[in-house]
Amino acid sequence: MLGVSGVLAQQKPHYTQYVLNQYILNPALTGIENYTDIKISHRRQWAGLKDAPVTTYFTVHGALNKKDYRTTATSFQVDGTNPRGTDYWQDYSAAEPHHGIGMQVVNDQTGPLKNFSAYATYAYHIGIGARTSLSAGFGAGLSNVSLDANKLNFGNTQVDPAVYNSGSVNNMKPDIMAGLYLYGADFFVGVSMQQLMGQSIYFSGNRIGQGSKLAPHLFVTAGYRMLLGEDWNLIPSVLLKSVSPLPVQFDINTKLQYHDFVWFGAGYRKSDGWNAMAGVNISHTVNLSYSYDYTTSALNTVSNGTHEVVLGFLLGNKYGDWCPRNVW
């Protein structure tokens, strides 16, 4: 009883392949491309460990009246050439002013706790230079944090009487998020905040104390694209995450892409472990990627790593893009 300490942790899930779908972190990416972008992802963290985090999400977003491509398509696959080679990026231009709308649904479960959220998002994009664009976006929706008290039965151990025999306790709360995104032919920088309302949640009917807070989360992303010859693109990127008063945690990733067809990657998450990634653009409509995280903490003695799959669909892709033009 004399050894008392506090434990703090982030409430939003990890995403190893964040660079493939930064929209899940930042609503300012809503409608950034010339097609409707759909992503479905499933992540099983610390596989083999009972009640470890499992995250599934669905996102869809697209532009409204976006017309910044020339009338002649520039990105169709041509045998023997790279549609994302030197000529393509030399002709890159800033986005014409346009709006974007989207939706994201996330289900994140860890043991007896489940966080289900659904948001509608909006963003406005505008060129601020010949090759540089800026977007601002926000999202509004609902978050439902629930506790399954039946999973708190540990045999001979007494369950907290505040929640004992109460079944599933749900906390439905409104929520908002906002973000900014600066991007061009060679770089991107984004900043966003989620859970801005900081709602309190209670798992007991008598609402003892101040409850638990849905703390605001800060996300910062940045990346740079480099051409390695005519056939390869190298994109190093970083993701910074912070939940006050926690220190900043960072992810560092590098993605190496051959033409618009296949890519490989590797990364490191501070105080957690390493990861490897790979993906393929099956066509200009479907893409698939997978990542594996190797945990370097003591959790690697009881788990078999983390698996994450992302399946993507590009609808209304009239210019035949095999991969994104503005988020690579």
Rank of each mutant, 00 (worst) to 15 (best):
K151F: 07
N115H: 13
L134G: 06
Q158I: 10
G102Y: 02
S146M: 08
D108Y: 10
T110E: 06
N144Q: 09
A130I: 09
I128D: 02
H99G: 09
T121K: 02
Q109E: 08
T132I: 13
D148T: 03
S143Y: 02
P112H: 14
T157K: 14
D108E: 05
D160S: 12
G127F: 08
T157N: 08
R131S: 06
I128L: 09
G141V: 03
I101A: 13
G111V: 09
G155P: 08
A140F: 08
F154Y: 15
V159S: 15
S146W: 05
V145E: 05
V105M: 15
S133D: 00
I128K: 15
N153W: 11
Y124S: 02
G141H: 06
I126T: 14
P161D: 13
A136R: 01
G129H: 14
S143K: 12
T157C: 05
Y122R: 06
V106D: 03
A149P: 02
Y122T: 03
F116V: 10
S135N: 06
A120N: 10
A123L: 07
H125A: 08
S146L: 07
A162Y: 04
Y122W: 14
G102K: 03
N144D: 05
K151T: 03
T157I: 13
M103R: 02
S135V: 02
L113R: 14
K151S: 02
D148N: 11
G155F: 14
G129Y: 15
A120D: 01
L152D: 02
A130P: 10
Y124R: 14
A130D: 09
Y119M: 06
I101P: 01
L152T: 04
T132V: 15
A140P: 00
S143R: 14
H125L: 11
G141Q: 07
I128P: 07
G139C: 02
D148Y: 05
V106P: 00
K151D: 01
D160C: 05
A149R: 01
I126S: 11
A120S: 12
R131K: 14
K114V: 04
A118P: 03
G111S: 11
A123S: 13
H125E: 08
D160V: 08
G129L: 11
T157A: 11
N144A: 05
I128N: 10
G127T: 09
H99C: 10
L142Q: 07
A149C: 04
S146I: 09
S133T: 12
N156I: 09
M103Q: 02
F116Y: 15
A162M: 13
D108Q: 09
I128S: 09
M103P: 01
V159A: 14
D108M: 06
A136N: 00
V145F: 09
A140L: 08
L113P: 00
F138E: 00
N107P: 04
F116N: 10
K151P: 00
H125W: 06
A162N: 14
A118G: 12
F116A: 10
V145T: 10
N156K: 15
I101D: 01
